[in-house]
Structure formats: C-alpha cells, structure tokens
Design a protein around this nucleic acid. Structure first.
Length: 158
DNA sequence: TAGGCCATCTGGTCCT
DNA sequence: AGGACCAGATGGCCTA
C-alpha cells in the first residue's frame, strides 16, 4: 500500500496541527451520539480523512476510528519534582563536565530528530508545502495508526 | 512584526 | 559519580 507522497487535505492538517482530535471523548465513534460541538468539528475532520483514504484506495470511506482506544486521556502532572519529595542535592559541575554534557545532549537530540525523520517517512503526507513539524508528525501518526487499526479490525471481521 | 518551530544551553532529577 | 532524561530559557530563522 503505497501512500507516501499523496496529497493531504489541508483540513486534516489543520486538525493535526491544532490537536483537536485529542479532545475526543473516550470510545468515540462515528455512530455515537454527538453531545459536544467540538466533537462535530472533529467528526468532520475524520470524515475528511476517510474520504481521503477512500479516494486514494487504501480504505473505504465508512471505516471509523475509535481514538479513545488509544487511551489518550489527559495525563496528570507527572513532573519529577511533584513525584518526589526528596530534598534537592546540589551537584557541582566543572566547565569541562558541562561542555561534555552539552555534547551528549546535542547527540541525544540529534538521535531524537533522526527518529522523527523516520516517523515522517512512515506517515502519509499530502500536498503540504513544508515538512511536518515534530508535533504535527506525532499527531498525524496517531491518526494514521488509529485509522489503520480500525481498518485491520474491519478486515478481520470480513 | 508576531508567532511558530527548532537548536542549544542549562540545571534538576533519575538511574546504574 | 557520572550518564541519561527532562523541561525551562533563550535566540535565530522563517512565514503569514
């Protein structure tokens, strides 16, 4: 299934960019009742995503995705300091150590960006004039995985 | 010019 | 003790 380099509806990209799909209620489905206005917006975006999918022949337009199955609840504050009641210990660090730590951090961020580049190659991209940002990449990957999961489930039923 | 995105530095915390 | 991880701060670049 070759979908790389395809064209992505700009509305889908807006959806990915603003992250509104993350606000979908758990177990959200197209058949469920729409109680909130935000759901209507998200619904429209998702329909457009499926339209896109069907147009390009890798799904039928009636496939539905349950984003709630991903467990995308809002996580509570998980900062380290809030989790630990430990007293702060001061760590003296020399300028050489700081310099070495900076280099390690740069390498770490570099490998993180390599992983993002790999992910960018895996998600379907559309006529998008600029490359996906990291947050867009993550959000689109979530949508894409959800979509593929639903597609798989549907195929298994048949 | 404001806002978004990113790279880099930095210090705090966790982990081995 | 020191490396890994994380988040905040800062500045540069780009685009609308």
């Amino acid at each position: 299934m070759e979908i790389q380099g395809q064209f992505l509806d700009s509305t889908v990209m807006d959806f990915v960019t603003d992250g509104s799909f993350l606000e979908l209620p758990l177990n959200f489905s197209a058949e469920s009742k729409q109680s909130e206005a935000t759901s209507l917006h998200s619904m429209d975006i998702r329909e457009r995503f499926y339209d896109f999918a069907s147009i390009h022949g890798f799904a039928d337009a009636e496939s539905k995705v349950s984003l709630g199955s991903l467990g995308m609840e809002n996580s509570p504050d998980c900062s380290m300091s809030s989790l630990t009641g430990r007293s702060k210990r001061k760590r003296v660090i020399t300028s050489n150590q700081r310099h070495a730590a900076n280099i390690r951090e740069r390498k770490r961020m570099f490998s993180l960006n390599e992983a993002f580049d790999d992910l960018r190659k895996k998600v379907p991209t559309f006529a998008y004039e600029k490359r996906l940002s990291r947050i867009e990449t993550l959000r689109l990957a979530i949508v894409y995985i959800s979509f593929m999961s639903e597609l798989l489930k549907k195929n298994e039923k048949q």
